[in-house]
Amino acid sequence: MNKSQTNIIVIEDDERFRGSAVLFLIGMHYETVKFCLTMAEGIAFLTSHLDEKNIIILDYQLSQGEMGNEVLHVIRKDISKLVPVIFWTANTIQEIAEIISDKTYAVVSKTESSETLLSIIKQAENELNHTIEGALEEWLVLEKGISVDPYLIKVSKQELTIKEILNELRLQTPTGQKFEKNLLMLTIDLLLRRKEKLND
Protein backbone atom coordinates (compact mmCIF):
# COMPACT_ATOMS: atom_id res chain seq x y z
CA MET A 1 0.00 0.00 0.00
CA ASN A 2 1.32 3.44 -0.93
CA LYS A 3 1.48 5.59 2.15
CA SER A 4 0.25 9.15 2.12
CA GLN A 5 2.89 11.89 2.28
CA THR A 6 0.73 14.05 4.55
CA ASN A 7 2.46 14.47 7.92
CA ILE A 8 0.45 13.38 10.96
CA ILE A 9 1.63 15.37 13.97
CA VAL A 10 0.49 13.88 17.26
CA ILE A 11 0.87 16.20 20.25
CA GLU A 12 0.34 13.98 23.29
CA ASP A 13 2.08 14.08 26.67
CA ASP A 14 1.53 10.40 27.49
CA GLU A 15 4.62 8.56 26.29
CA ARG A 16 2.71 5.28 26.30
CA PHE A 17 0.78 6.34 23.20
CA ARG A 18 3.98 6.40 21.17
CA GLY A 19 3.74 2.63 20.69
CA SER A 20 -0.03 2.39 20.77
CA ALA A 21 -2.18 0.41 18.37
CA VAL A 22 -3.83 3.57 17.09
CA LEU A 23 -0.52 5.14 16.05
CA PHE A 24 0.57 1.84 14.55
CA LEU A 25 -2.59 1.84 12.43
CA ILE A 26 -2.09 5.46 11.36
CA GLY A 27 1.54 4.64 10.54
CA MET A 28 0.35 1.96 8.12
CA HIS A 29 -1.36 4.69 6.07
CA TYR A 30 0.96 7.68 6.54
CA GLU A 31 4.67 7.91 5.85
CA THR A 32 5.38 10.34 8.67
CA VAL A 33 3.71 10.13 12.07
CA LYS A 34 5.55 12.58 14.30
CA PHE A 35 4.95 12.02 18.00
CA CYS A 36 5.54 15.18 20.08
CA LEU A 37 5.41 15.24 23.87
CA THR A 38 5.09 19.00 24.21
CA MET A 39 3.46 21.97 22.58
CA ALA A 40 6.87 23.46 21.72
CA GLU A 41 8.00 20.28 19.98
CA GLY A 42 4.78 20.03 17.99
CA ILE A 43 4.80 23.64 16.92
CA ALA A 44 8.47 23.49 15.96
CA PHE A 45 7.82 20.46 13.75
CA LEU A 46 4.79 22.08 12.12
CA THR A 47 6.64 25.33 11.49
CA SER A 48 9.55 23.55 9.85
CA HIS A 49 7.23 21.46 7.67
CA LEU A 50 4.74 24.12 6.57
CA ASP A 51 5.59 23.50 2.94
CA GLU A 52 4.16 20.01 3.28
CA LYS A 53 0.64 18.87 4.11
CA ASN A 54 0.03 18.38 7.81
CA ILE A 55 -2.76 17.16 10.06
CA ILE A 56 -2.52 17.61 13.82
CA ILE A 57 -3.87 15.18 16.38
CA LEU A 58 -3.97 17.14 19.60
CA ASP A 59 -4.47 15.91 23.15
CA TYR A 60 -6.58 18.29 25.18
CA GLN A 61 -4.74 18.07 28.51
CA LEU A 62 -0.99 18.14 28.13
CA SER A 63 1.57 18.03 30.94
CA GLN A 64 3.10 21.06 32.72
CA GLY A 65 -0.26 22.82 32.69
CA GLU A 66 -0.34 23.12 28.90
CA MET A 67 -3.77 22.84 27.36
CA GLY A 68 -4.60 21.74 23.85
CA ASN A 69 -6.68 24.82 23.18
CA GLU A 70 -3.58 26.98 23.85
CA VAL A 71 -1.70 25.00 21.22
CA LEU A 72 -4.59 25.46 18.83
CA HIS A 73 -4.70 29.18 19.53
CA VAL A 74 -0.97 29.60 18.80
CA ILE A 75 -1.31 27.62 15.56
CA ARG A 76 -4.32 29.62 14.39
CA LYS A 77 -2.88 32.99 15.39
CA ASP A 78 0.72 32.65 14.24
CA ILE A 79 1.11 29.71 11.87
CA SER A 80 -1.91 28.63 9.86
CA LYS A 81 -5.66 28.51 9.84
CA LEU A 82 -5.58 25.88 7.12
CA VAL A 83 -3.98 22.92 8.97
CA PRO A 84 -6.71 20.56 10.17
CA VAL A 85 -6.56 20.01 13.94
CA ILE A 86 -8.32 17.03 15.48
CA PHE A 87 -8.72 17.01 19.25
CA TRP A 88 -8.15 13.57 20.70
CA THR A 89 -9.27 13.56 24.26
CA ALA A 90 -10.19 11.62 27.35
CA ASN A 91 -12.57 14.42 28.32
CA THR A 92 -16.12 14.33 27.10
CA ILE A 93 -16.66 15.88 23.70
CA GLN A 94 -19.19 18.32 25.21
CA GLU A 95 -16.60 19.59 27.70
CA ILE A 96 -14.09 20.27 24.95
CA ALA A 97 -16.54 21.72 22.47
CA GLU A 98 -17.61 24.35 24.97
CA ILE A 99 -14.04 25.51 25.61
CA ILE A 100 -12.34 25.68 22.23
CA SER A 101 -12.95 28.86 20.30
CA ASP A 102 -10.62 28.49 17.33
CA LYS A 103 -11.51 26.41 14.31
CA THR A 104 -11.20 22.68 14.96
CA TYR A 105 -11.71 19.96 12.38
CA ALA A 106 -13.12 17.38 14.84
CA VAL A 107 -13.13 16.25 18.44
CA VAL A 108 -12.61 12.52 18.92
CA SER A 109 -12.84 10.66 22.21
CA LYS A 110 -9.95 8.39 23.15
CA THR A 111 -12.58 5.74 23.80
CA GLU A 112 -13.38 5.64 20.08
CA SER A 113 -11.79 2.93 17.96
CA SER A 114 -8.52 3.43 16.09
CA GLU A 115 -10.45 2.97 12.84
CA THR A 116 -12.74 5.88 13.73
CA LEU A 117 -9.79 8.22 14.29
CA LEU A 118 -8.14 7.02 11.07
CA SER A 119 -11.34 7.58 9.15
CA ILE A 120 -11.59 11.16 10.43
CA ILE A 121 -7.93 11.81 9.54
CA LYS A 122 -8.58 10.57 6.00
CA GLN A 123 -11.66 12.76 5.74
CA ALA A 124 -9.61 15.79 6.85
CA GLU A 125 -6.91 14.92 4.32
CA ASN A 126 -9.47 14.61 1.56
CA GLU A 127 -10.89 18.04 2.35
CA LEU A 128 -7.38 19.48 2.58
CA ASN A 129 -6.76 18.27 -0.95
CA HIS A 130 -9.96 19.72 -2.37
CA THR A 131 -10.27 23.21 -1.00
CA ILE A 132 -9.46 26.37 -2.93
CA GLU A 133 -7.10 27.51 -0.20
CA GLY A 134 -5.39 24.09 -0.17
CA ALA A 135 -4.87 24.18 -3.94
CA LEU A 136 -3.58 27.73 -3.83
CA GLU A 137 -1.23 26.92 -0.95
CA GLU A 138 0.14 23.90 -2.81
CA TRP A 139 0.75 25.95 -5.97
CA LEU A 140 2.42 28.78 -4.08
CA VAL A 141 4.73 26.34 -2.29
CA LEU A 142 5.86 25.07 -5.70
CA GLU A 143 6.37 28.66 -6.94
CA LYS A 144 8.29 29.64 -3.83
CA GLY A 145 11.54 28.24 -5.12
CA ILE A 146 11.48 30.73 -7.97
CA SER A 147 12.18 33.96 -6.16
CA VAL A 148 12.42 35.70 -2.82
CA ASP A 149 11.81 39.10 -4.47
CA PRO A 150 8.47 40.87 -4.26
CA TYR A 151 6.11 38.91 -6.46
CA LEU A 152 2.84 40.69 -6.08
CA ILE A 153 2.56 44.36 -5.32
CA LYS A 154 -0.62 46.06 -4.27
CA VAL A 155 -0.65 49.46 -5.93
CA SER A 156 -1.58 50.99 -2.59
CA LYS A 157 1.96 49.98 -1.56
CA GLN A 158 1.96 46.54 0.09
CA GLU A 159 4.66 44.33 -1.45
CA LEU A 160 4.35 40.57 -1.07
CA THR A 161 6.87 37.83 -1.72
CA ILE A 162 5.53 34.36 -2.40
CA LYS A 163 6.33 33.47 1.21
CA GLU A 164 4.32 36.44 2.42
CA ILE A 165 1.42 35.54 0.15
CA LEU A 166 1.50 32.08 1.74
CA ASN A 167 1.37 33.61 5.20
CA GLU A 168 -1.59 35.79 4.22
CA LEU A 169 -3.33 32.68 2.97
CA ARG A 170 -2.48 30.47 5.93
CA LEU A 171 -3.50 33.07 8.47
CA GLN A 172 -6.62 33.82 6.44
CA THR A 173 -6.07 37.57 6.50
CA PRO A 174 -8.40 39.74 4.39
CA THR A 175 -5.73 39.75 1.66
CA GLY A 176 -5.40 35.95 1.85
CA GLN A 177 -9.15 35.54 1.63
CA LYS A 178 -9.22 37.92 -1.32
CA PHE A 179 -6.75 35.69 -3.19
CA GLU A 180 -9.04 32.71 -2.59
CA LYS A 181 -12.04 34.65 -3.79
CA ASN A 182 -10.06 35.72 -6.86
CA LEU A 183 -9.58 32.06 -7.77
CA LEU A 184 -13.28 31.33 -7.48
CA MET A 185 -14.07 34.41 -9.53
CA LEU A 186 -11.51 33.40 -12.16
CA THR A 187 -13.13 29.97 -12.40
CA ILE A 188 -16.57 31.50 -12.86
CA ASP A 189 -15.17 33.97 -15.40
CA LEU A 190 -13.56 31.20 -17.47
CA LEU A 191 -16.80 29.20 -17.42
CA LEU A 192 -18.96 32.17 -18.38
CA ARG A 193 -16.64 33.15 -21.24
CA ARG A 194 -16.64 29.46 -22.31
CA LYS A 195 -12.88 29.12 -21.98
CA GLU A 196 -13.41 26.11 -19.75
CA LYS A 197 -16.33 23.79 -19.10
CA LEU A 198 -17.35 21.64 -16.19
CA ASN A 199 -16.62 17.94 -16.48
CA ASP A 200 -19.69 15.72 -16.46
Binding site: L140, L152, F179, N182, M185, L186
Partner: peptide, 24 residues
Amino acid sequence: HNKKIDELYQDNFFVASVIRDNRD
Protein backbone atom coordinates in the same frame (compact mmCIF):
# COMPACT_ATOMS: atom_id res chain seq x y z
CA HIS B 1 -7.30 41.87 -19.75
CA ASN B 2 -9.26 38.86 -21.02
CA LYS B 3 -6.55 38.03 -23.54
CA LYS B 4 -3.88 38.08 -20.82
CA ILE B 5 -6.07 35.98 -18.48
CA ASP B 6 -6.57 33.40 -21.23
CA GLU B 7 -2.87 33.32 -22.10
CA LEU B 8 -1.80 32.92 -18.48
CA TYR B 9 -4.34 30.91 -16.54
CA GLN B 10 -3.10 27.44 -17.46
CA ASP B 11 0.47 28.24 -16.41
CA ASN B 12 -0.19 30.72 -13.63
CA PHE B 13 -3.78 30.78 -12.44
CA PHE B 14 -2.80 32.96 -9.50
CA VAL B 15 -1.59 35.87 -11.64
CA ALA B 16 -4.50 35.33 -14.07
CA SER B 17 -6.86 35.68 -11.11
CA VAL B 18 -5.18 38.97 -10.16
CA ILE B 19 -5.58 40.33 -13.70
CA ARG B 20 -9.26 39.37 -13.61
CA ASP B 21 -9.61 41.21 -10.32
CA ASN B 22 -7.94 44.32 -11.79
CA ARG B 23 -10.24 44.07 -14.82
CA ASP B 24 -13.37 44.05 -12.69
